[in-house]
């Protein structure tokens, strides 16, 4: 079993855990979170720590509410950049995996490359992106695509390489290449693509924000954080971080919902 296989099946175990222990799974983290925030608030107040250094949670929350409209706008822009990057990176990766599947040596070569790229800190390539695209939104999108593509390639290639008794069925009914792809190969690799997206989508938010931080489109979370931190507006920076966390959670939930919808036929997703 490869890591990709584990990732496809892994979700099932998670879900079972949730079904059996709904209370523990929800309650324990909530308690920890409340305790953490309380201690933070107390420490800041009792030790009288400067706002510049570490603002109290209550101050951050107040600022978050005050700037809510602006923060939502920033998050939407960041989300759109990340989404475009995921879309472009995934389409290229899946298309490439589809083309080279069956050409074993090429597939192997590309797989080693994508493993290597995955291990590299790709965000470091951002300055190069700005050489190609300027300090624009495009550079951020390109950076996300570069970060996402190797992950998606590994998973898609693993999915395409699968064989099953259905291959004989397809041959026995003399299916042409197109039907074989749409009726068998693509749906069969979908669990792998979804597993890839569960890793790639949260990562895309991180890459976007960091790229934006180093310069990119103006009205985004990363750019806002950089601007406010140079002005020493620590509370604003923290409220943007809160928004970034919320954005991360939202996209994760969105991917999980997509997963459940598209893979409702998959053995690990069935609710019986």
């Amino acid at each position: 079993m490869t890591t990709e296989d584990a990732a496809v099946a892994g979700d099932a175990t998670d879900k079972k855990g949730q079904k059996n222990l709904p209370l523990g799974v929800v309650l324990t983290p909530t308690l920890f979170f409340v305790a953490f925030i309380t201690i933070w608030e107390l420490v800041v107040r009792i030790r009288d720590i400067q706002v510049l250094l570490l603002p109290a949670p209550s101050a951050i929350w107040a600022m978050f509410l005050e700037d809510f409209g602006l923060l939502v706008e920033l998050a939407v822009n960041t989300g759109i950049e990340a989404g475009k990057g995921v879309l472009i990176g995934s389409l290229i990766a899946i298309g490439l995996a589809g083309l080279v599947h069956g050409i074993s040596w090429l597939n192997q070569g590309l797989l080693s490359y994508s493993s290597t790229i995955k291990a590299l800190p790709t965000v470091a390539l951002y300055p190069i992106m700005t050489v190609f695209f300027g300090v624009t939104s495009k550079a951020v999108v390109a950076m996300v695509a570069v970060g996402v593509a190797p992950i998606m390639f590994t998973f898609a290639s693993r999915g395409f390489s699968g064989t099953s008794e259905h291959d004989e069925l397809m041959r026995s009914i003399s299916a042409n290449w197109r039907t074989r792809m749409t009726a068998l190969v693509l749906p069969r690799s979908l669990p792998y693509v979804m597993a890839g997206l569960r890793t790639a989508v949260p990562l895309s938010i991180i890459i976007s924000i960091i790229s934006e931080y180093f310069g990119g489109s103006v009205s985004t979370l990363g750019a806002y954080i950089r601007r406010e931190s140079t002005l020493l507006h620590t509370v604003q920076v923290w409220s943007a971080i809160v928004m970034a966390c919320i954005l991360g959670v939202l996209v994760f939930v969105a991917v999980s919902l997509l997963d459940r919808y598209f893979l409702r036929w998959h053995s690990s997703r069935r609710e019986i």
């Binding site: 008794e165 259905h166 009726a183 036929w265 998959h266």
Partner: peptide, 8 residues
């Protein structure tokens, strides 16, 4: 085996 496509 029935060999049905589970997604259909």
């Amino acid at each position: 085996s029935p060999n049905l496509l589970p997604w259909r």
